[in-house]
């Protein structure tokens, strides 16, 4: 099975998988515990506007996507903070507007857009070296900021009101967090496509959260799971000639449901042993 590593594109794909897994595992944990999955989905889709813009201006669409997703992150983040209950409506609107802008830009761009589908459905096999470097830089940014503000981010995620009262700059940190989500979304988009981004962002932490109750361990386990899903998905898609992004997501999805069953089994077994011990 190791003959596939001979291919340069395969090595790039695996490198991309590892890089994205770090961002996904760490940032995905925040997405899950803050319950902002919908907001993250909104950012992912709004980023499509940036891909259209990239094509229109003839620059790397990934750069366009970074710009748009940061804009969407700030916009949606502020909406989420300020409007409270009804924020999901506005986020849904921004989600659609972002996509629409992308499509219109693409309409106006001349020429054949061959790899357009790769942004929608991912193309881990076609990740160029330049994107690997972008991913590496984004990863470093994410790791450094999370390491610096770990305690503060945990505090605002757990009890925002208390954090505010002890003068933690809640608003600024929150906007930083959504921007980090935006960057992660752009990276993940290359792997599974923007439509399935939230799946890879949320499933590993959701599984990890079933088994560990410590945030650092949850992040670590999410990273490992994410790497595992990407590799297994990639191998299966290679041998069975399937779309890689979708295969990765299905591997993650099946694992998600299996881990629920395992968790339930453990629970009932624990209960039984408690009863027999009593």
């Amino acid at each position: 099975m190791f003959e596939i590593f001979q291919y340069g594109f395969m090595r790039n794909a695996l490198a991309a998988g590892v890089l994205v897994s770090f961002a996904c595992g760490i940032i995905g944990t925040y997405v899950v515990i803050n319950r902002i999955v919908f907001l993250s989905g909104g950012i992912a889709h709004a980023a499509y506007g940036g891909i259209g813009l990239g094509y229109f201006l003839g620059i790397n669409p990934t750069i366009g996507a970074i710009v748009f997703s940061l804009g969407a992150s700030l916009g949606m983040g502020m909406v989420h903070r300020k409007t409270g209950e009804r924020s999901d409506t506005i986020i849904g609107v921004m989600w659609a507007i972002g996509m629409a802008i992308g499509i219109i830009f693409l309409d106006m761009s001349p020429g054949y857009k061959a790899d357009l589908m790769s942004y929608l459905f991912g193309s881990i096999l076609a990740v160029p070296r330049s994107d690997l470097i972008i991913m590496l830089v984004l990863n470093v940014i994410i790791l450094v900021l999370v390491a610096l503000y770990y305690k503060e981010l945990q505090a605002i995620s757990f009890d925002e009101t208390f954090a505010f009262v002890v003068n933690v700059p809640v608003d600024r940190l929150y906007l930083m967090l959504v921007c980090l989500i935006g960057l992660t979304v752009v990276m993940t988009m290359r792997i599974v496509g923007l439509i399935m981004v939230i799946a890879l962002l949320t499933m590993p932490p959701a599984i990890a959260g079933l088994f560990v109750k410590d945030m650092k361990r949850m992040m670590g386990l999410s990273i490992l799971l994410s790497i595992l899903f990407t590799f297994v998905g990639l191998l299966l898609s290679y041998y069975w000639n399937l779309t890689s992004g979708a295969t990765i997501i299905l591997v993650a999805g099946v694992s998600y449901f299996i881990s629920f069953m395992v968790k339930n089994q453990l629970k009932t077994r624990k209960k039984k042993s408690e009863i027999s011990a009593a």
Partner: peptide
């Protein structure tokens, strides 16, 4: 604060919760 229903799954330890009280007055 008043007792609020919160996410029982939230991955945070008692020690980390208490640590929150210190955050404002110190450098990040």
């Amino acid at each position: 604060p008043q007792y609020i229903e919160f996410d029982r799954q939230f991955p945070i330890r008692v020690w980390e919760v208490v640590q929150m009280g210190l955050l404002g007055c110190r450098k990040p």
